[in-house]
Design a protein around this nucleic acid. Structure first.
Lengths: 194, 194
DNA sequence: TATGTTTTCTACCGATCGATATGTAATACG
DNA sequence: CGTATTACATATCGATCGGTAGAAAACATA
């Protein structure tokens, strides 16, 4: 009951995500958001709570859509294929021309004021969670003989995520998809074979 | 002549650098700066112009001091030693415990509002300049037979800088120096031998 | 001591920040 | 229809943003 909402929640969230991705949490103002989302300020607060909650919902949407490949990549049969799909997926997501260049998890809030510290911590936490998930997958691979017994899955996972996040910086600086593919290729050269 | 300045320019600049490094250009307020530098607001403007000029001077000081190793690394005799010294230098600079974690060139302004766009461009420009300088050094190395004839110095340079900037993100997320050293080690495994 | 120059201080500027109070329009239910 | 409920729009809140006027204080030179 009550008056029906005149805008689509997910469409508005996509606009907010685009802004936060491109300008970061603190670099995006409420006026930026309401202009892009086509929603007045009170409607935004009624629908999403406040700026921080809006960011978190946009981040969840980012994870559900743009980062979906990270989950499916872990299901690849071999460790090398997992990493290959992961890094190419990041390269694609960071240069897909429809979203801002780079990575929302890095651009969102890397260095910020005290006020945005919780956001920064949230993003850092998700980054390490991704690294840990990859590390576990590589541990399984080692146990299955898919990786040398003397290698360190944790170190390998950190190496891969370092390249992934480094590519996000490169993309923000204007690197092309092909340039990132070349980086992925060199990264895989360092990959150990069972 | 005139009343002598009561604070040291370089000491104040170091305080400003620490703040910009830790909180970014936009995340650092004038009140943050004056508090940390021990200088009143009009004194700051008289000495440094405005916030943007202060940032640029702090950035120059960062380059002259914390990034000095990047120049000397290029003088190493072999391409591999250049890259080894470069990456270990970045790992050290990003985890030296006296400065904020990560890299000023990345933390300073990665995603920001339109107002800080010139700062963002400046930092991106310096990043690509570093990559180009390394690429030239690797070209020389290839010409000298220090690298395989069929390798791409530009791709190698991009790969190295991608890892360097990725390590900056890792350091911001709390990675230890040893963890970054492990990443450097894996990166060098991909290095071609002549 | 008198004067010119520079730095220091207190106080304040307009603009923008995130967030709301208040009243009206649009729906569902009785 | 009447009423409850929800979303809409206008107008504004106090706080903070980067940046400055204007006067007093500390020096060099005369």
């Amino acid at each position: 009951m009550g008056r029906p909402r005149e805008f689509d929640i997910d469409e508005a969230l996509d606009q907010a995500l685009d802004l936060f991705w491109r300008k970061g949490y603190e670099g995006t103002s409420l006026s930026d958001l309401t202009d892009a989302m086509g929603v007045t300020r009170p409607s935004l607060y009624a629908a999403f709570g406040n700026k921080e909650e809006l960011f978190r919902k946009a981040l969840d949407r980012y994870d559900d859509t743009c980062m979906a490949f990270t989950r499916s990549a872990l299901n690849e049969p071999t460790a090398r294929k997992v990493v290959d799909k992961l890094l190419h997926g990041f390269a694609d997501a960071q240069t897909d021309q429809v979203h801002p260049p780079g990575c929302m998890g890095v651009n969102g809030a890397l260095a910020c004021s005290e006020e945005a510290e919780p956001i920064k911590q949230e993003l850092a936490g998700r980054r390490v969670a991704g690294e840990i998930a990859l590390g576990r997958r590589l541990e399984d691979a080692r146990a299955a003989g898919d990786l040398p017994a003397d290698c360190s899955p944790a170190d390998l996972a950190r190496y891969v995520m370092t390249v992934a996040h480094g590519m996000a910086i490169q993309a923000s600086s204007g690197a092309s998809r092909e340039a990132l593919y070349a980086v992925v290729g060199m990264t895989l050269k360092a990959w150990p074979s069972a």
